[in-house]
Each structure stands twice: as structure tokens, then as C-alpha cells.
């Protein structure tokens, strides 16, 4: 109810409505953006811009739908664009050929030596293209189903399925030793 009131206020041009939405969704939004951009400052910038754009486009938002998924979808899309733009800048300015040609697949020995599981997963996620990383974040962090992702991303279910499949496949390859060790099934 509070969310609907906030949206109604915002639709009337009352910025006080935005305040309530910021307080409700800012943490989840920045976390989502951070998992995709891997850069805290870029994540905060992305979320701030997303809130301001949501404010400008609130007239297009169907008040009968929950605001959260609509907004977090927008944040995820923006985060992909931000990190893509950011990567382009890095490759032109400071990126080295060695970085670009670095082997994306660590060997079993490297993974086994990794003391921190989170770090290993984090590194593996970082090697995914931003769009695939966003698919993983939407599916596993925000807990959206494939059908919800298709709805929220406004793209055919087949596209979402393919993105998730590609992301999972690559993630599994990157984490194969860990997957095998934990499940014992060699997944």
C-alpha cells in the first residue's frame, strides 16, 4: 500500500514519492548493479540514474504492477550498459593486450589453491560477458524464474533461456573443479 501511495505521489510530480521508493529499493538495487558492474561507484551511479529515469518515466509505469521487478530490471539493463561502456573506455585507455588475451579458464590447480570460495566465484563471474552475468544475477540473486526474466527483460523466453544456458555453461566450466568436489557427480 505504501508503495502504491508513493507511486501515486510521484505520478503527480511529488518528489516525496521518490524518497519512499529510494529507501525501499536502494540497497537491493545497488547490490544488483554491483554484482553486474563489479564496481561500487559505478553501481551507485547506475542506480541513482535509474531512480531519476524512473521518476521521469513513472507515467509509463502500470501502477497495478509491483514497482520492484520493473525497477530492478531497469537497473540490471543499465548496469550491463554501464559496464560495457566502462570496459570500452578501459580498453582504449589503460587496458593491455595481455589482459585481453588472459586465459579465462583457470586450471584445477589454480582453483584448488583458491582459499576463498567467494573469491573464486566472484572471479568466475567476472569472466562472463556482462549480459550473461546479468542473467545469472537476475536468476540466482534476485531469484527470478526464466518466465519472469523474459517478462521483465521484455524479450522472448527463448532468448532468456539461451543467455542463461550460455552463462551457466561457462560458469560451470570455470567452476568445474568446485562443482565436481561438492556434488561428487562431476557436474
Amino acid at each position: 500500500m505504501e508503495e502504491q501511495k508513493a507511486i501515486a505521489r510521484l505520478k503527480r510530480g511529488d518528489i516525496g514519492g521518490l524518497k519512499a521508493l529510494v529507501h525501499k529499493y536502494q540497497v537491493q538495487a545497488v547490490r544488483t548493479a554491483y554484482l553486474i558492474t563489479r564496481d561500487r561507484a559505478l553501481a551507485e551511479d547506475t542506480v541513482q540514474a535509474a531512480f531519476l529515469r524512473a521518476c521521469e518515466r513513472i507515467g509509463q509505469f502500470d501502477a497495478g504492477r509491483p514497482f520492484g521487478p520493473w525497477f530492478l530490471r531497469s537497473v540490471a539493463n543499465d548496469a550491463v550498459k554501464s559496464v560495457t561502456r566502462s570496459k570500452r573506455q578501459i580498453s582504449l585507455e589503460t587496458g593491455s593486450l595481455a589482459d585481453l588475451l588472459a586465459d579465462p579458464n583457470p586450471g584445477p590447480a589454480q582453483v584448488a589453491e583458491a582459499a576463498d570460495l567467494r573469491q573464486t566465484v566472484w572471479d568466475a563471474l567476472g569472466k562472463l560477458p556482462p549480459a550473461q552475468r546479468a542473467a545469472i544475477v537476475l536468476r540466482y540473486y534476485l531469484g527470478l524464474s526464466e518466465a519472469e526474466m523474459a517478462s521483465e527483460l521484455a524479450c522472448p523466453p527463448g532468448t532468456v533461456k539461451w543467455r542463461l544456458h550460455a552463462a551457466r555453461k561457462r560458469l560451470r566450466r570455470l567452476l568445474r573443479p568446485l562443482w565436481a568436489a561438492a556434488s561428487g557427480s562431476g557436474r
Binding site: V27, V30, R31, T32, Y34, L35, R40, A43, L117, R118, V121, W122, I136, V137, Y140, Y141, G143, L171, A182
Partner: peptide, 14 residues
Amino acid sequence: QVTQILQEIAEQEV
């Protein structure tokens, strides 16, 4: 575990 790890990473940072 991926879900749990993503949550831990996100909560640690933000």
C-alpha cells in the same frame, strides 16, 4: 550455493 555466495558478496560490499 551460487545464490548464497552472490548474497554474501553483495551484502559484504553494500
